[in-house]
Write a protein that binds this DNA or RNA. Sequence first.
DNA 1: AGTAATTTGTACGTATGTATC
DNA 2: TGATACATACGTACAAATTAC
Lengths: 251, 251
Amino acid sequence: MPAQFQTVQPVRAYQRVVEQVEEAVLTGALKPGERLPSERELMAQFGVSRSTVREALRVLESGGMVRSRPGDPHGPLVLPYSPAGLEKSMSRLAHLDQLSLAELLQFRMMVEGGAYLLAARLRTDAQLAEMRGALDAMERAVDRGPTAFSEADLAFHDTVARMSGNMLIIICSQVVHGVVLDMIAGKLQKAPDPRAVMAETLDHHQQALAAVRAGNGQLAADLARAKLYEYYADHLSSEERTALKWLVDGR
Amino acid sequence: MPAQFQTVQPVRAYQRVVEQVEEAVLTGALKPGERLPSERELMAQFGVSRSTVREALRVLESGGMVRSRPGDPHGPLVLPYSPAGLEKSMSRLAHLDQLSLAELLQFRMMVEGGAYLLAARLRTDAQLAEMRGALDAMERAVDRGPTAFSEADLAFHDTVARMSGNMLIIICSQVVHGVVLDMIAGKLQKAPDPRAVMAETLDHHQQALAAVRAGNGQLAADLARAKLYEYYADHLSSEERTALKWLVDGR
DNA sequence: AGTAATTTGTACGTATGTATC
DNA sequence: TGATACATACGTACAAATTAC
């Protein structure tokens, strides 16, 4: 085996501190709710200066792994895992990478389709009741305007995503839905008849709920994709529309 | 409208610096390849101490947004987007047992299915040739062992993902594939007959390529899901197997 | 090629507000 | 309430690294 050397970049002191703490959390040596030593003690344990310790703590803090408060004698708190980091990464991707609305909708079709497919199998009475409740909330929101309706709609889809039992679907659903709303912001209010649009959406969601209740995930997924297409098709170029239709028909 | 106050937590100085730089990058005011002012200039512009500037830079650096080198008179470099952060978040999720292999495979079925569906429509001769090339590379890798074969397999799937023309699919495909490999690292070498497994995988990929060439994305997607199921079913509990099968059949 | 200037990496000290006991 | 320990933020200093002349 030939020597296959790789380029190395200098490892900063703060990075080694971060790595050690991350390792401890990942291996379970440090559990959520437990405390890190105080900054002064950390500088002794790691043999680095206060600045280095603080830079490491800031990185861990921004990553959602610990939280340190001024004056807290117990030291930085180890936080339970939160998907906030994942969400932020995905939002950045969506905003940065010249992601087109068509790409987002394609992805959302895949995610929502999968969510319905799983939700229709895993459904419990409590979850169906939650869907029903979300639907009722949407109905009540019709009179409070498109913004409130949009929020209620998002809650409905979040419920379905959670019913799938798949963390990745839950997170992607939240993120993608949010980004799509960002991209379309304002364009929906310009609809000639907002109430008609909302009524139609409501009707579609009722059909989807019925399909999930009946255990027909395939139908619910098909409905969701078709609805997404007709709802957003106006905002797409003809090429984008064609590509999106492939996913609707092709499943 | 009643006063609806919310709890607020103190915003650290470094956070405001981070936010402003992130905003500049997100809005395109600061493009990859450009430079941030030096630390000393940043402390003047933001009106904070050098420690604060450095803490902010460390956070941005750990997020993969900038890179600063000692002695560089041009200041920190703004980096292009990289999915490294996404991958790290997802890996963490997986390692902390918040994410099961079954969830990852469900997600991968959705992503790969969508990729094939789109690839079969958008296919160009050059892309089909690239798939063919990736397949040939896999064939050559059979003799170099499971690790080399696995790498070639990853390249094949990456090609399909890129053919979809959807950045989200490309990134998710890379990330999820990588995490799955991490989770079952080593378990595949223990197969009684590695060559048989590789041959079977090769055969399946050839079928998928034929389906894409024929423009039958539905068939390619079905093949991919079925293959994923039989390939990883052994590593799942019976409940997880059942849930995974729902996605295979349901589509 | 070598030197000087600038920048980052790290360390240390200090003042101030804060949370806990 | 007071005492103590803590985090926050600022400032200074010096070594190491890089670039530019």
